[in-house]
Design a protein around this nucleic acid. Sequence first.
DNA 1: CTGAAAGCGCTTACAG
DNA 2: CTGAAAGCGCTTACAG
Lengths: 336, 336
Amino acid sequence: MTKRTRVRANSTEVARLAGVSIAAVSRAFAPGSSISPALAERVYAAARELNYVPNNLARSLITRRTNIVALMLPTTSNPIFAAMLDEISLRLEDQGKQVLLFTPSDVADFDRTLQHMLQYQVDAIVIAAASISSRMAALCVDRNVPVVTLGRYLPGIPVHSVRGDEHDAGTQAADLVLKGGGRRFGVIDGSPNLTTIVERKAAVTARLESAVGPGAIRIADGGLTYAGGHRAALALMEGPDRPDTLVCLTDIMALGAMDAVRHALGLRVPEDVAVVGFDDIPEAGYMSYQLSTVRTPVKEMAKYMIELISAKPEPAEPRAIKIPAQLIVRASTRGL
Amino acid sequence: MTKRTRVRANSTEVARLAGVSIAAVSRAFAPGSSISPALAERVYAAARELNYVPNNLARSLITRRTNIVALMLPTTSNPIFAAMLDEISLRLEDQGKQVLLFTPSDVADFDRTLQHMLQYQVDAIVIAAASISSRMAALCVDRNVPVVTLGRYLPGIPVHSVRGDEHDAGTQAADLVLKGGGRRFGVIDGSPNLTTIVERKAAVTARLESAVGPGAIRIADGGLTYAGGHRAALALMEGPDRPDTLVCLTDIMALGAMDAVRHALGLRVPEDVAVVGFDDIPEAGYMSYQLSTVRTPVKEMAKYMIELISAKPEPAEPRAIKIPAQLIVRASTRGL
DNA sequence: CTGAAAGCGCTTACAG
DNA sequence: CTGAAAGCGCTTACAG
């Protein structure tokens, strides 16, 4: 039995064993510090012997940098959010930072979550699919914590934002199905709380109405899930004058809708019913679906978000970046 | 223009404004402390005025608890990991803890990642789909940081583990396709580095061989992705004596395999080729796939993992929890 | 209940 | 390059 050494060695003990000052220990573990190789080597030897691990807490208390970025993200049940998480955390880890995850069960109480983030002294905050109050935004500005929101532009609130051009996306999707000969439309809606969805819907219905009039458009709620999209499609397809086209405001709902059309109703896609979605999640490209969609440029968005929160010096004015939409035509729509 | 107050108010300033000691400020923000309501109210008023946010770093330095749990997770490109992440972070947030995410690009260098986790003074470490060296495990024990691994049992290494019964899972899957009349088998393999996969494969091939002999079994690598499963299925189906059954060691590969069989080869599932997978990702239940599979009990696993790392007092011996497999029979296999 | 004081483990001018 | 000392923002015995 070896005697268990002290639970956590600190820099004082390392310094004592190495016969140096604690300042030397600090310098040995701070890249770029002025320390002689010989001294550093003695420190490393002592550190190894004591299983010394530097304490980031104490360090951050002084440097005022934690290398932690708070990320507020809805559940990853929608693959688009999982992809976003991957991109963001990979990029951040490349620059030596880690993601601290927040998935507030109560979005209404998001102010409290933000307060919580600030307590952890995070270097920056990334908010996906939620809003921030102007009071909390001001608090973050005061504390020099950059904030970037994803998919939401909040005029007058001093935070950066990155989003896709949803108006253009909706218009392109509508144009695609119109060009394919669509005349009776079902739109599968998502949450009224997500700006992204609301803007897509506005653009889609505006374009469709201008072509076929409001009477030819029905709307149902798909709740942003596969099962919800499935149910919404069944509801829309009931009765006379059945739609010849379903526009689904997210891909995950489009998958449910396609399966409803094919497997529950026994109709063909796109011959009987054309389907178009938004996001371009991986499943949209699977051979069982081959879903035409408008891509949400995840990689590009992550890149801009990281740039905005890492910029030195911090830009004086909040920046709003809008990324163009990119239509992906596959086999679920008619024409060309 | 209001004059911008000091960037970050600290407890000293709050104390001064409230006319109390800093100990009183500390107590006002520490639930359960003995402080009179009147005093607390004065502190809150001053804190509000100064936009005071307590500094968790300083607090944790003393209390030795950060309320942060490190989670090492491969990329969420496999939906099963996304589901796991959701479960773990939701449960942890319920107990007031946050997940600090680590996605090491270089799993070979995992020791360094672990060291990195310890620097952040995390309260516990959850490791999915990776191993921990006995040296690092000992370091965590010394520092009183509980570690739990997911899907990997490491005899002799003092960490907790939670995993499914992969032997039983593989056996059940093999029995299912055998009962369905399968006689020529293709097995789509994943990574040789994942214990889970290796154990499934061993159980599947053992059972199949005992029934039809080794000559009737072909194996191809599907790389744990949809595209890889697709390619592997095409390779397995080439030439004479084509398999009548594909056993895919993860669902995500099974989706690719099913699409290859149906859409690239024009064959029927399950009539021409039966397909079975493992995990029960959401897509397995989609009507386009209706994939028979063996469920990985994500919720239960997350529950046990959290229990193991939260147990007070820390169990003296590492615990290894094995969760039974649950076969889900859908339409991609023959019989019953 | 309340406050003065010590101290958590580090970094960083400052002086040599 | 190196060290002594002050200090980051808190908590916690201790004494009253």
